[in-house]
Structure formats: structure tokens, C-alpha cells
Design a protein around this nucleic acid. Structure first.
Lengths: 134, 134
DNA sequence: TTTCGTTATGTGATATTATTACATTAGTCA
DNA sequence: TGACTAATGTAATAATATCACATAACGAAA
């Protein structure tokens, strides 16, 4: 896990933008937030996002084309398991959890089918408890 | 499950294109394949795709922005469970399976967190047995 | 410290995916 | 018929992501 201090300028700016946000941000939203810091092109954002994904500091939510800071940056509980995301379609809040049973079942399938998995996406769309209460 | 016969002209064209294909297709690939049939605009494809998704005849693969015909159209084995997809990044082949244990664990999480799920995506990216053997 | 290779950055153009807005046509059914 | 709904056609545009190429910053090794 690469600590924040080793990030480059652009990587830090993008990571801080995601950390400040209370939900996922699109690449272009990040770009707009960082115009004042000198950002001018999408690639500046995408390149930083790629590195932050490499470092495991952020996640990409495939089903909504957006990015979030990792909710458990200092925990290794996720390091051996797949991470699932519950995404509220009302408020945008994202909950992150990992489940060893799910991880195990997926591994069983891949192993018995000779499939070498590189990345697994589990995203639950719906309405969170807060928004559902209304 | 709406049978093919009840599909409109555009829906049939799109569904047949996906059925013919041996892997997922992007909306614009479908559009190109259907130019000879009179398709001229993306919306003709997207509208048909939306309906076919409604009818459960096709799936959308969120992680690669593509669509596939449902692999088990005549089976109800999936109707109560989540469907997982294993997507080969070499050859593009997609395997579809459902797992009651995974479905159960996801439901446990959502129930105990008061989260009302509407759609769940499980996509495994990697290399299939055939391609890995090379 | 200079040189070289690597990594990061800046910028414009372009590719890819998806939606909005509005007009028209085709069925359905009271 | 008339009125309603679903489906279609078309142009324009929005949103997301990458390519190509130039420049700068950095680190290791001579």
C-alpha cells in the first residue's frame, strides 16, 4: 500500500478530491474540481486514476463509470478477498464490504473452470436504508 | 419471458445480431451490423436493447459496455438468483452462471443493512481455460 | 555532475458510449 | 372515428475514454 506522501502532484490532487467527496465522482467531475489547480485535460485525471487504482487507494465503480476513495485504506481485510459495493441510486452513497464466502464461491467456479481471474466486480445497485426510510 | 415472436422489427434485428455473435457486442457494433437492414442511428439500437433487457433476453456487461444474448433463455434457474459472468479478455467469450450461495450472501448483507437491491452485477475478468492453455 | 533511461506531465485531437429533443408512424381500443 | 400508447426516424449533443506527440522532472549509474 503506497502511502499518500509518495504520490505525485496530480495523483495527490485527484486522490484528495476523491477523499473529500462523500460519494463517487466521475473523471470529468474531478477534472472540473481541479481546474483551479491547473488541470486542463481529461488525461491528467485518467492517468492519476490509473495509478491510484494500481496502488489500491481507489476503486472504480464499473456500473456507474465513477471512482471512490477506498473506504478501508489502512485495513488489510480486503487484500485477499473481492470487494463488493452497494451503491444507492438515490443519494449516491457507496458501502464497501468483502465476504469470504462469496470470494470462495467465485474462486471455486474459476478454479473448476480453468479461468484465471484478474479482476472481479461485484456491484449492488439499489436504495440504501436512509433513503428507503423516506 | 417474452418469446421472440412478440418482438418488434428493430428488437428482433438487434436480438438476432446478438444471438448470432459468439461473444458480447457493443451498441455501435450492432448498429454497424444492422446498417444494411436500415439502421441509421444509435438510438434505434439503444431502444431495442432497453426492451430486450426488460424482457430478460439479453444482459448488459457493465465492465466492458457490451451486450450478450442470455445463455439460458429457456431456463428459469436464474430467475431467482443473481447471474455472474466470466469474461475472457483474450477471446471475449462470456460464461454465465448463477450461484445460490453467492445470491444468499448478498441478500444477507442487503437485508441486514436495510438496502433494497434492484440490480446486482457480478463480473469476473480474466483469461478462460482455452486461452490460458496457449 | 553529466548522461541516460524512466516516469510524470501538458496539450490537442479524436474515439467510443449514451442521451436529449422533437417529429412521425403504427397499433389498439373505446 | 378519435384518442391514446408504443414504436420508429433523425439530428444534435452529452458524457466517457484514449491516442499521439511533445516536454519536463526524476533517479540511477558512469
Amino acid at each position: 500500500m503506497t502511502p499518500t506522501q509518495e504520490l505525485t502532484k496530480n495523483q495527490s490532487l485527484v486522490f484528495n478530491a476523491l477523499s473529500r467527496a462523500d460519494g463517487p465522482l466521475s473523471a470529468y467531475t474531478i477534472l472540473d474540481q481541479l481546474r483551479d489547480e491547473g488541470f486542463r485535460a481529461p488525461l491528467q485525471v485518467y492517468r492519476a486514476l490509473d495509478k491510484l487504482l494500481d496502488y489500491g487507494m481507489i476503486h472504480r465503480l464499473e456500473s456507474i463509470n465513477a471512482f471512490v476513495a477506498c473506504a478501508h485504506p489502512h485495513s488489510h481485510s480486503h487484500s485477499h478477498g473481492m470487494i463488493a459495493f452497494a451503491i444507492c441510486e438515490k443519494c449516491g452513497q457507496v458501502s464497501e464490504f468483502s465476504d469470504d464466502v462469496i470470494t470462495g464461491r467465485v474462486r471455486e467456479w474459476t478454479t473448476s473452470n480453468g479461468f484465471k481471474q484478474s479482476k472481479t466486480t461485484i456491484e449492488i445497485r439499489g436504495v440504501c436504508a436512509n433513503c428507503g426510510a423516506a
